[in-house]
Amino acid sequence: MSALDNHASEAGGMTENAARTPAAPSQMYVAFLRRVRLRRHLIVVCQILLLVLFLAAWEIAPRAHWVNPMLTSYPSAIWPAFVEMLGNPDNNILHHTWVTLVETVVGFTISMVFGIVVAVMLWWSEFFYRVIDPFLVVANALPKIALVPIFYIWLGDVASIYAMAVAIAIFITILMIFSGFRESDVNKIKLIRTFGASRTQILRRVVLPANVPVMIAALKINVGLALVGVIVGEFQAAKAGLGYVIIYGSQIFAMNLVMVSITILAAISTAMYLIILVIENRVMRHRQ
């Protein structure tokens, strides 16, 4: 629709709304919109530029022998290495990726479920919370990576990886979700208590739904931490998985393997983050 048409329709159908949203946007408004759009495009262009610069530096520096190519590999070497590993039956990269992915998903699912269950228990019994609180704080503060060798000895090469993912993610999950539970609006609880709600009803109808945003925030952190736990666990224990490929590759000085794995890890993190973002947008649509 041309500017001329807009003017015509404005003159023809002047309504009450016209004052608030004029049929024809003013020139200043059009200019404002253009500035906003321009700025958004500029940001994307800069982001792409930054990525290209980074890749270019990575490609050129070893080729020009500013750094030792043995240490860094090249971006252009990563794709062929990836393709080579796709066809390699002994060292199939898809298999490794799948193993790491499954371990991570299982790890954060266990952390979320147990985190919520423990948070509910803490919410249910103030006494239990008082008793357990200092232990939780210490467990959360402890660098869990220190436990890797112990888990390996106790649990073996498979279970120790899951244990590591859960150990890293669960305590912060419990603390975050419980503090959300505690801060649930007392007046909403009072309101449904006046209808005669039992403690289970308070939990199901106020505390849990009110804390869905907190749970999503916990999930975001959880996913990243579970991935850390899995990779660290694989460093020590695994016969498969991206953590294993990274350690194996660095030991035989095959930087291509390491870089392929790291690139895939970046892709996995991004994908999981985006999935959570979609869930979050869906859930938060009606909340303000």
Binding site: N187, K188, L191, R205, P209, A210, H286, R287
Partner: peptide, 8 residues
């Protein structure tokens, strides 16, 4: 306040 539940 109304304390309407924002998720309902």
């Amino acid at each position: 306040h109304d304390y309407l539940f924002e998720w309902r």
